[in-house]
Amino acid sequence: MTDPVKGNLKILGNSSSAGGSFQNVGITGECRFTGDVDCVKFGLTGNTDIEGSLHAQEIKLTGECGVRGGIDALSVRGRGELKIDSRMKAERLAFEGHLEVKEDCEAGEFRLSGVVEIGGLLSGDQLDIGLFGYSRAGDVGGGTIRIKPSKGYKLMKMVHPNRNVRFESRAIEGDIVELEHVSAETVRGGRVIIGPNCIIETVEYRESLEIHKSAKVRSQVKL
C-alpha cells in the first residue's frame, strides 16, 4: 500500500491546529499547534507556537516561532526570533535575529547574525556567528569556527559606543578557530586566532596561534 497524499495547510489570520502530517504549511498571521508538525515545507510570516516538535525539509521564518519539542530539518532560514525548548538538528541554518535552543544544536552549516543562546553543545562543520549582543553556548565544536561582531553591530557601535557584545562558552574546539569578543575556559584547535577583546583561560593549538594585543590569554600550549 502507498501512503495517502498529504494535503497542504494554509492559514491566514488567527487560528489553531492539532498538527499532523502535511505537504506544505504556510502561515500568515498567528497560529498555535497543539501537537507535532511534520511537513516538507514550513513557511511562517507572523507568530507561531508549536507544543510538539517540528520536522520539515525546509523551514522559512519571518517573525516569532516557539517550539516546545525539537526541530529536525534540512534547511532553516529567515529572521526574527526562534526559541526551542529541546534540541535542533539541521543540515543548513541561515538566520538573523535571536535563536535560543535549550539543549544541543547541530548543523552542518551554521550562519547566524544576532544573538544565539545554546544550553548544550553547538556543533557543525562550519560555524559562522556575527554577534549583536550577549550570546552563549555550553560548548562549541566544529571544523571551521568564526565568532565575531556582526556588521550591524559595528555600524551601531558608531552611534552607541558604550554598547558591547560578548560570546561566552566553556570550551571551543575546531580545526580552524577565529574569535573576537569571546570569553572561554578552553580554546583548542589546529590554526587558532584569538582576536580583539577575548578573555581565554587556556589555548591549545597544533599548527599556529595568533593573539591580538587586546586579548587576554592566561596560558598557551603547543600540542
Rank of each mutant, 00 (worst) to 15 (best):
Gly174Thr: 04
Thr186Leu: 15
Arg188Val: 06
Val182Tyr: 08
Glu201Gly: 08
Ile129Phe: 15
Leu127His: 09
Gly114Pro: 10
Val203His: 09
Val159Gly: 01
Leu99Ile: 15
Ile129Leu: 14
Val116Ile: 15
Ala137Ile: 10
Arg170Ala: 15
Phe167Trp: 08
Asp125Phe: 04
Leu155Met: 13
Gly133His: 12
His98Met: 14
Gly108Ile: 08
Ser135His: 08
Val187Leu: 04
Thr202Pro: 02
Arg188Leu: 06
Pro149Lys: 10
Val177Cys: 05
His212Glu: 13
Glu96Trp: 03
Pro161Ser: 07
Ile193Ala: 04
Pro161Tyr: 08
Ser113Asp: 15
Ile199Asn: 15
Val140Gln: 10
Glu201Ser: 13
Ala171His: 07
Ile200Arg: 01
Gly138Arg: 07
His181Asp: 13
Leu121Glu: 13
Glu96Lys: 13
Ser208Cys: 01
Glu168Trp: 00
Val159Asp: 00
Val159Glu: 03
Gly133Asn: 14
Arg136Gly: 02
Arg136Asp: 02
Cys105Thr: 07
His160Cys: 09
Ile118Gly: 03
Gly152Ala: 12
Arg206Cys: 04
Leu112Glu: 01
His212Ile: 02
Leu122Tyr: 11
Lys154Glu: 12
Leu131Ser: 03
Gly130Tyr: 11
Gly130Cys: 12
Glu201Phe: 02
Glu180Ile: 00
Leu93Glu: 00
Arg163Gly: 06
Arg206Val: 12
Gly142Glu: 08
Val192Lys: 06
Glu207Phe: 12
Gly108Cys: 10
Val115Leu: 05
Leu209His: 07
Cys198Pro: 03
Ala94Arg: 12
Arg206Pro: 02
Tyr134Phe: 11
Ile118Ala: 02
Gly152Cys: 05
Glu106Lys: 10
Arg166Leu: 12
Pro149Leu: 12
Leu155Phe: 00
Gly141His: 09
Glu100Leu: 13
Ile193Ser: 03
Leu127Asn: 07
Val177Ala: 01
Glu109Ala: 10
Leu112Met: 12
Met156Ser: 01
Tyr134Pro: 05
Gly97Thr: 08
Arg146Gln: 09
Gly138Asp: 07
Val101Gln: 03
Leu112Arg: 05
Val187Asp: 07
Ser183Lys: 11
His181Ala: 14
Ser113Met: 12
Thr144Leu: 10
Gly195Leu: 11
Ile145Gly: 01
Ile199Ser: 12
His181Met: 01
Phe167Asp: 04
Ile194Cys: 02
Pro149Gln: 10
Met156Gly: 00
Cys198Arg: 01
Glu201Leu: 12
Leu122Pro: 00
Gln126Phe: 14
Leu155Pro: 01
Asn164Tyr: 05
Ile147Met: 07
Ile172Gln: 02
Thr144Arg: 14
Val203Tyr: 09
Thr144Phe: 11
